[in-house]
Design a protein around this nucleic acid. Structure first.
Lengths: 242, 242
DNA sequence: AAGTGGTCTAGACCACTAC
DNA sequence: TAGTGGTCTAGACCACTTA
């Protein structure tokens, strides 16, 4: 994976940018880069495309490719590297503790919706895992996840009481790299109010997602209900390609 | 712009997907598409790549290209799907009407936070534009935006009563292509309840964003409060290209 | 073994910018 | 007019999945 041509170029250019090797904030033109790296112009383009997506450079047709001055300044805000799809790792824990309380752990037949979402056949089974997430002993999220048993046949109660993604990666060498999420807002229902300690006027954020493995296999559908005051989603959107 | 090959394919495939012309949730393979559209496989790949980025399809190496089942569900009104940064264009208007009611339009000095976000100097001024967005005559969003006067010196009351982004693009040839957004949830306050017609138990979604022009210039900071039942944000996160 | 998506190349032509 | 990035092609080869 790391020996791909465009990736080699990408990493090299990135470190050269960080090393300030382009003091005029301008990169060489694509044809020169192609020659210098001894790769095709398409590969250069691909590497530059990734950098542009990350907001590190700007291309201006007809004039050249330039380093984004904002990127070099305000690194904290605009830097989008190493985000994480898993919940356990999405919360900053500077000394605070995260906890998981297992509410229920069952095996159930996949309903029709689930069959579609997870690419299952009629009669396939899924784990249904309900958990309460705690942050410094305060519950902030109800999580109900469904995972096909045929993808992870030996999930145990112990495993689902911890980070499932970490288990998968460490033990089974499966990596979750994509997710499709949809976010909504709703008034809290009675279960929310009880489990999350909310007043009737206090709402929840709802995140539903499908998580995919590296190869595109849908791995889990998850429904998450969060205390409104623990929800904060940041995103950097670019529209280069419509 | 619209006559690009990959865009033609992209739009065609997109509408075929929406029309449910692939009932088995599977697209033809790339080589067949290439032949069917009479374009190169690279162009097919590019179109499919955009669809994949938008989370509409996903590709499984070795087996094929499939439609994301979650995408077809959850099609509410506010629908950001990376297709457009502007609000006016983010709403599906199949016959429905969108409206904007101007609440206030002032010029004020930029406070310190604004100076940072919009890269302004001490003493610079910004427009403060408050608007109520309507959908089929129902208010669904309160929008308060701040734009530096030095970037758009001749904004008029008429312009800010319509789509500012469209005005910029059509009249000034400036295009907004990037944004940094943060989303939260909160109980509705009295102003929300009055303007959006909410009950005290009904919440709002809050979106705050900085919008950037093509060349990286920050153009607007905006704070948006939406009726909870009009909010639905879909996003597809990939950790692929690092 | 056949079929699928992924990567990469070499080169043509186009559209825009700067001088 | 020269130089830049953008689009597109045709085809080779690789990696993975499925049977």
């Amino acid at each position: 994976m790391a020996d791909l041509v465009y990736r080699r170029v990408l990493h090299d250019l990135k470190s050269r940018i960080h090393d300030n090797q382009f003091p005029d904030k301008r990169l060489p033109d694509e044809r020169s880069l192609s020659e210098a790296y001894n790769v095709s112009r398409s590969s250069i383009k691909r590497a530059l495309g990734v950098l542009a997506n990350q907001g590190i450079i700007f291309k201006k047709r007809g004039s050249g490719t330039f380093i984004n001055p904002l990127y070099m300044k305000n690194q904290t805000i605009f830097h989008y590297e190493g985000s994480n799809l898993g919940i356990t790792d999405s919360f900053k824990s500077d000394g605070q503790t995260q906890g998981i309380k297992l509410l229920s752990f069952k095996v159930v037949p996949a309903n029709e919706e689930m069959q579609q979402d997870l690419f299952l056949e009629k009669g396939d089974f899924v784990y249904e895992i309900s958990r309460l997430r705690l942050f410094d002993d305060h519950p902030f999220m109800i999580e109900r996840g469904f995972i096909p048993i045929k993808i992870a046949p030996e999930l145990s109660q112990k495993v689902v009481s911890g980070s499932i993604f970490n288990y998968l990666e460490d033990v089974q060498n499966k990596v979750v790299t994509k997710s499709f999420m949809t976010m909504k807002v709703a008034p809290s229902n009675e279960e929310d109010q009880e489990l999350l300690g909310l007043k009737p006027t206090e709402p929840v954020a709802i995140m539903e997602g499908i998580f995919f493995l590296d190869d595109g296999t849908p791995f889990e559908v998850s429904n998450m209900r969060l205390r409104y005051d623990y929800f904060n989603y940041n995103t950097f959107v670019t529209l280069d390609e419509e």
